[in-house]
Design a protein around this nucleic acid. Structure first.
Length: 183
DNA sequence: CTATTGATGTTCT
DNA sequence: GAACATCAATAGA
């Protein structure tokens, strides 16, 4: 369980602080090794054009989930935090708990690709729109603090066409479970 | 290793 | 119609 004010800090701080924390959904998951921050006046953010039915969770209270459909195929998980309209995209985990469940859902035994990417991670953990706009400190979610202070790698965010110069992608330095290498 | 392309549904212009 | 916070498969160097 994280401290109550964990998600009320600015979104970049939250994105960095999530690296090394453990995320579980129904006891399946692992350590967060890659995140990205999105802010309301950030052209790459879904919230950039204001509150819509889809982005409503981003304007709700911090410490809840925002799950959206990506490219019509995948689900992606965010954690709402910072100022209204901000969220942190969870991009990769190191798979540690419930490996067999994750392998079965993903249809692969390649542990390196189990949770390396926002879409893969949601498939491995069974996250769908049923998990949208839920509190992260209650079942089926569990969020555990990290041990110590990890070295954080930084770079530009992935898969966007605007806001590409904002270095708001964060990773656990040296992790082999990130979705892409850091510069 | 890099580059390209198809799949697919929702949101916004 | 176009764009999209992606992924897997394929082709080539």
């Amino acid at each position: 369980m994280l401290p109550p004010d964990f998600f009320t800090r600015d979104v970049e701080t939250v994105a960095r602080a999530l690296i090394g924390c453990t995320l579980l959904v129904d006891d399946v998951g692992g350590m967060i090794v890659e995140t990205e921050a999105y802010a309301p006046h950030d052209p790459a953010a879904h919230s950039f054009r204001g509150l819509t039915p889809r982005t409503r969770p981003m304007f709700g209270p911090p410490g809840r989930s925002y799950v959206y459909r990506s490219y019509g195929i995948h689900w992606c998980l965010n954690m709402v935090g910072g100022a209204a309209g901000s969220a942190v995209l969870i991009r990769a985990l190191s798979p540690e708990h419930g490996l067999e469940a994750m392998r079965a859902r993903r249809g692969t035994i390649d542990d390196r690709l189990l949770c390396a990417g926002p879409g893969r991670l949601c498939q491995a953990l069974g996250i769908t729109d049923a998990h949208n706009d839920l509190p992260l400190d209650e079942a089926p979610f569990a969020l555990l603090p990290r041990i110590g202070a990890p070295e954080i790698a930084v770079g530009p965010r992935i898969g966007i066409s605007v806001g590409v110069d904002t270095p708001w992608r964060f990773g656990l330095a040296g992790s082999r479970h990130v979705s892409r290498r850091f510069p």
